[in-house]
Design a protein around this nucleic acid. Structure first.
Lengths: 342, 342
DNA sequence: GATTAGCACTCACCTGAAGAGAGTGCTAAC
DNA sequence: GTTAGCACTCTCTTCAGGTGAGTGCTAATC
């Protein structure tokens, strides 16, 4: 891939930033006027024709200005994008939100409210992958009998995440029997990550506890379920914000996206896919078809230094990358801090 | 209010049903043709002019057909609407869904999935008010120490609903102390409805337990929170379905609705407002401004005979009332059955 | 007196033509 | 290598005319 000379980079930068602001194809005149490029429109036209040939720009039709191609955005994000400082207002808003959130205890709620704040401040749609059980370590487990046939299992991870599940008891067990089972499991499993609770490992445990086998089936079924990926909850915020984007004035597109928003499973796949740091996927780089007009900026958040979920912003490919990256980074910092203090 | 003669009723009925199907203003010719009314178009025109004067019909513009007014829909719903049988397909679908749901244990999940099914089958947006803690009775409570400073409270209602909350412990308490507190509360509170746990009642209890007072503050704070209306969670299904309705081709309207969908608090108010049986509110009969173009059909669902939440369908005022009513009734029947068997 | 046929009229909607405006690509001059 | 000039392209808006569905009114009919 030929590297672009400085002038082409400047022009590409100008096209991208202008188009991000206006959502209108950018003409050569606009660039020579509004950006500090001491060149005439004609020269810029030539350069733009080159950029188009190289695949960084697109022309919606012959007599229109240029818009960035997906490749154009990619180059902008990788090499051209300036880092942006948060505004005073935004900083204050975040500070206020997180002081409020400090009062909350439930991690899911905190994360959900964070998503909301993220959508408010970015004016895009936000998505959060809720804390994933399987990334945590086993903490302790309790059994609470509810009646003759059922008991409530409470599983607490080392990260303070709590999961309930009602299970059937094949026969009534005395409190002592239950206590024995539970304390055995607690010592055996303590500190293991949930995802390491593979069926084979559970089978081994079962042999050791052979005498109380009936209830174990139910208990193990629950543990297995936890180590599976069932638990990938996704919260959304600001879904109506997409309607403000001119690229979504087309009902069909909106419909596709809204439908996607209802499919938590699909969304969680997208969010899980990325690595650990901040990640930007543009247009068709997203695996999901419905998102081929969108870009997604995500980052992991952590509890006690261990990444347990992801938070991100979904917008049109024409998204204000620089601003959103700054905001996401800042919000993750806040969120990590807050979660640590729980 | 003048009662309409039979002929006017027939015509109104024809206009409403036709408009519900086509979303187009209904002309006099259409009615004399397609409906069994042995009258010429001209006569029907006269009657329609009367119906308009009486406020049951509206004319979008001079040379268009008529559409039902809000009052027209109201009359239709109250007096004209036929009862509809569910189709074989729909019945089968519901049966299948609920056989699936039987495997689930968590009531919130069941209710949420029911909402989804409701939206699929009606092709409108569905809303469910999740089971309300405050309508249930206290069952039992457990305290699980997590570390030196924190403990997990698990509250189980008689309806099998489970609520977790992490609380701070002012000082480390031994397991025995905790057990004593909890077993005291369990016997004292057993069988009371959550909403009856008023601050004054809690104060009285506190006096009796004066010795262990530190932790009680946290515990009582939790109980108070439960008896408050915090817990009004609303689930939505099929939000993208509104986009299929021609009356929502206008982006502004969609935007308003989507924004409303994000405000759970507002929605819960709407759902809570209605009585116990099936309830239909049309257009501006809904308290919420954003819903003045919509109609909402809701019904309560119950656990052990006690209504604990509401389920409903939101559509345009041009909604297929008869069909939706039939579906909602059927689904509530299924749901009640299922919840009973938990 | 109720019903109907006939007719002029209204209004939304579609279509096609004309004109404006933005921006391009190419050529020739600097 | 850069720029000015110019013809050309293409979209978008506007407007006029035509079409069709449906009405309200009047006069004839049952």
């Amino acid at each position: 891939m030929a590297v672009l000379n400085e002038r082409k980079q400047k022009i590409l930068h100008a096209v991208v930033t202008d188009y991000i602001q206006t959502a209108e194809p950018v003409g050569s005149r606009t660039i020579s006027r509004h950006y500090q490029i001491a060149l005439s429109a004609a020269t810029i036209r030539n350069e733009m024709a080159d950029l188009e040939e190289l695949g960084f720009l697109l022309q919606p039709h012959t007599s229109a200005g240029r818009i960035p191609s997906q490749r154009g955005y990619r180059f902008y994000v990788d090499s051209l994008m300036d880092t942006v400082q948060l505004g005073k207002q935004e900083e204050n808003y975040l500070r206020r939100v997180f002081t409020q959130l400090k009062k909350m205890r439930e991690i899911n709620q905190i994360v959900q409210q964070t998503a909301k704040a993220l959508s408010v401040i970015t004016r895009y749609t936000s998505m959060v992958l809720a804390p994933q059980l399987k990334r945590s370590a086993f903490g302790q487990m309790r059994l609470i009998p509810m009646n003759e046939e059922q008991a409530l299992v409470v599983l607490i991870t080392d990260t303070g995440y709590i999961k309930n599940k009602v299970i059937d008891m094949p026969r009534a067990l005395s409190q002592e029997e239950l206590d024995r089972i539970v304390s055995f499991l607690n010592t055996e499993l303590s500190g293991l990550t949930i995802s390491s609770l593979t069926p084979s490992r559970l089978r081994k445990l079962r042999r050791d506890l052979y005498k109380q086998v009936d209830i174990l089936d139910s208990l193990f079924a629950m543990l297995e379920e936890c180590s599976g990926q069932q638990e990938n909850k996704v919260f959304l915020g600001g879904t109506s914000n997409i309607l403000d984007q001119p690229e979504f004035k087309d009902m069909e597109k909106v419909k596709h996206l809204l439908t996607l928003f209802e499919e938590g499973e699909k969304l969680s796949v997208v969010l899980e896919g990325a690595g650990e740091g901040i990640s930007i996927s543009i247009g068709t780089e997203n695996v999901i078809n419905e998102m081929s007009d969108c870009s997604l900026i995500t980052a992991s958040y952590s509890l006690h230094g261990r990444p347990i979920g992801r938070i991100g912003v979904l917008g049109p490919t024409r998204m204000e990358y620089a601003r959103v990256v700054a905001i996401v980074e800042e919000i993750v910092k806040h969120l990590n801090n807050l979660l640590c203090s729980l």
